Amino acid sequence: MSVRRLAEDQVQPAAFAFNDENAVWAEATIRKYPAGRQQSAVIPLLMRAQEQDGWVTKACIEYVANRLEMPFIRVLEVATFYTQFQLKPVGKRAHIQVCGTTPCMLRGAEDLMKVCQRKIHHDPLELNADGTLSWEEVECQGACVNAPMVIIFKDAYEDLTPERLEEIIDAFEAGRGDEIKPGPQINRYFSAPEGGPQTLLEDVKPVRTNLEPQPTAEEGATMPPAEAGRPKDTATEVNPAVKTPVTDKEGAEAQAKAAEQQPLSATAKSEPDPKSAGSAAEGAPPEPGAVSGDLKPKRSRKKTEKDT
C-alpha cells in the first residue's frame, strides 16, 4: 500500500470549522452513538469536512480530534488509511476518479486515463493550470458490467468512450457539470441490455387452473362425496353389485324359506339303528368275523422291579 502523507504546510489552512448547516448535522450525527462511543463518528465527520472544503486538512483533523476527545494521532491514522479521503487540494470543479480494475481496463480504462493526462495533468492528483480539475486512478467502483467508468464527487458515469469523457470534462470545467446525467452514457437503463429488453417482450399469462372459478352445485342439489382420498379396491367382496344378506334382506329371507321346504337329500344318513350289526350303539351285535368278548386278546405289560 502506498504511503499517504498530509499536504505541505504552505498549502494548509490556518484553521477549520464547520459552517452552520454542517455544524447542526455534526451534532445530530454524534448523538446517534451511545455514551462513551462518540468516537465512532470520526469517519462521517471527516467525510463531511471533505465535502465542505474539497479535501481533509491538518486543521480539520485537529478539529475532529478535539470535538470527539480523541488523540490527534488516532484521527490521523483514519484519514491516512482510507483512500477516500483526499489529503491534498483537488480540483474545485471536478476530481475525476478513473477505475483501473480488470473489467474497466479490458474495456478501455487506459484510453480514459490518456484523456485525463491530456486535458488535466500528466500526473495523477495534480491540479490543472487553473486549479479547477484533477484526476487519479482508483480501484473497483462497483459497476463492472457498465465498464469503463469514472466517479466525479458522488456520481458515477458509466459506459464511457474517450470522446464522451472529453465532453464531460469540458462541461465540468465550464461549470456545467450538473447538466451531465449520471449513470450509463449509452441507451440502457442501469445495467439492462443496450436498447432495452431483448427477451420476454410479450406479456405471458400463466395458466393457473387452481385460481379459476370452479362449478358449483345448483340450489337444492347434492354433491357426491369426493373419491380422491378413498382407496381403490377391485376385490369381489367390496363390489357393491354383489348382493349379501345385509344389502338384500328380502332375497335372503326368500332363500331361507325355500331351503326349509325342500326334502332331505337321499344321500343324507338317518340316525343309526342300535340293532344293526356294527352299530356304535351299546349292545349292538358285532360285525361278522370281528373278534369280541372273551376271545379278544388282553393287553399285558412288562413287570418291573417296582411290581415285584
Score class of each variant (00 low, 15 high):
Thr216Cys: 01
Pro206Ser: 09
Phe190Glu: 15
Glu219Asn: 02
Gly196Lys: 12
Thr199Pro: 00
Phe190Asn: 15
Ala235Met: 00
Thr222Asp: 09
Gly195Leu: 04
Ala217Leu: 04
Pro225Phe: 03
Gln198Thr: 05
Leu201Val: 08
Lys232His: 15
Pro213Met: 11
Pro193Asn: 08
Gln198Cys: 00
Arg188Asn: 13
Ala235Thr: 01
Pro231Asp: 02
Asp233Lys: 04
Pro193Ser: 08
Ala217Cys: 05
Glu227Gln: 09
Val238Tyr: 02
Arg230Pro: 00
Pro213Ala: 14
Ala235Asp: 00
Ser191Thr: 15
Asp233Tyr: 00
Arg188Glu: 13
Asp233Glu: 04
Ala226Tyr: 01
Gly196Pro: 07
Gly195Met: 05
Lys205Trp: 07
Asp203Val: 12
Pro224Cys: 01
Ala221Lys: 13
Asp233Phe: 02
Val238Pro: 02
Val204Asn: 08
Pro225His: 02
Glu237Asn: 01
Thr234Gln: 13
Pro206Lys: 12
Glu219Ser: 05
Gly196Asp: 10
Thr199Leu: 07
Leu211Arg: 14
Pro213Gln: 12
Pro206His: 08
Ala228Tyr: 07
Arg208Asn: 11
Glu194Leu: 06
Asn210Ala: 11
Gly229Lys: 12
Met223Val: 11
Pro193Trp: 05
Arg188Trp: 11
Ala221Val: 07
Ala235Ser: 09
Thr216Met: 09
Gly220Ile: 03
Gly220Tyr: 01
Ser191Trp: 12
Arg188Tyr: 12
Met223Thr: 13
Ala217Pro: 00
Ala217Trp: 02
Tyr189Ala: 15
Glu218Thr: 07
Tyr189Arg: 15
Val207Leu: 11
Phe190Asp: 15
Ser191Ala: 15
Leu201Gln: 10
Met223Ala: 04
Glu194Asp: 03
Pro224Asp: 06
Met223Ser: 02
Ala226Asn: 10
Asp233His: 04
Arg208Pro: 01
Val204Ser: 06
Gly229Leu: 08
Pro193Leu: 06
Gly220Glu: 04
Thr199Arg: 08
Glu218Val: 05
Glu218Ile: 05
Thr234Val: 11
Gly229Phe: 06
Leu211Cys: 06
Ala192Trp: 12
Ser191Leu: 14
Gly196Phe: 07
Gln214Gly: 07
Pro224Met: 04
Lys205His: 10
Arg188Cys: 12
Asp203Asn: 12
Glu194Gln: 09
Thr199Ile: 06
Asp233Met: 03
Asp203Phe: 14
Ser191Gln: 15
Val238Gly: 00
Gly220Thr: 03
Glu218Cys: 02
Thr236Met: 00
Ala235Asn: 04
Pro193Glu: 05
Met223Gly: 00
Leu201Asn: 09
Glu202Asn: 10
Lys205Leu: 07
Pro224Thr: 06
Gln214Ile: 09
Arg188Met: 11
Gly220Arg: 03
Pro224Gln: 05
Gly229Thr: 10
Asp203Arg: 10
Thr222Cys: 02
Glu218Arg: 11
Glu218Ala: 13
Glu227Ser: 08
Met223Trp: 03
Gln198Phe: 01
Pro231Trp: 03
Ala228His: 07
Pro224Arg: 06
Pro215Asp: 10
Pro213Ile: 11
Pro193Tyr: 04
Ala221Glu: 09
Gln214Tyr: 07
Tyr189Phe: 15
Ala228Cys: 04
Ala235Arg: 04
Asn210Tyr: 08
Thr236Asp: 00
Arg208Gln: 10
Gln198Ser: 00
Thr199Gly: 01
Gly220Lys: 02
Lys232Pro: 03
Met223Arg: 06
Glu219Leu: 03
Arg230Lys: 13
